[in-house]
Amino acid sequence: MNVSSAAVRACGLVKTHGQGQSRVRAVDQVDLEVPQGQMLAVMGPSGCGKSTLLHLLGGLERPTDGEVWVAGRRIDTLSERALARMRRRSVGFIFQAFHLVEELSAAENVELPALLAGRSRRQARRRASLLLERVGLADRAWHLPSQLSGGQRQRVAVARALVNEPLVVLADEPTGNLDTTATLEALRIFEELRTAGQTLVIVTHDERVAATADRLVSMRDGMFVDDARLAGSPTRGLGGLIGLEG
């Protein structure tokens, strides 16, 4: 696979937490390449290091060892400031707990990354209303997060993650706090994103979410134990060689 077509790449990634007796290898020698346009699902039991992996890929945490590349650029050696700039342009995060700014309305939450990225107020506002419409929340734009349901909040978070047209969206159990109806709604949105060619890494417990992905990796104790191309995947490459196709 061509390196330049990889949106995100990790080599020999290691992250340990704590020291001495309580030392945990949250991520242990992970090699990963996510080509552009791929929707990758990461599954595994609780505590196996999925969140840590996602944080490493988005530059929220620094690896103990190994390299992380985003958009063809090595990021694990960047300064905090440069990392922040990288996130603005290239990464969108979605969290299980939504992590919206409680004081800001839905629209303001969506605008925030755009403003941080230096867009004009008008541009930011236009993007925000466009995206809120896309996730079906045009009529809730001026509600505070506390006035929205869980599913609606997560859709605001999705809109916010997309506002700067990031190269990759990193979602950490995005449906973990949602009921069935809201999960189905979220699934529809992820499916749309996949069709639109958005690179996505989704950590999930939910088989239904994983089933919409192009590729599924399983993690255990910080390591990948399985890497499978799913049916209907637009790109078939290395996965076939390893013989783990589902």
Partner: peptide, 16 residues
């Protein structure tokens, strides 16, 4: 704290 952390994930620098 929480809001600041969120802003960081959205690309705010520590300086900002």
């Amino acid at each position: 704290r929480a809001n600041m952390a969120i802003a960081r994930t959205l690309g705010a620098t520590p300086g900002q």
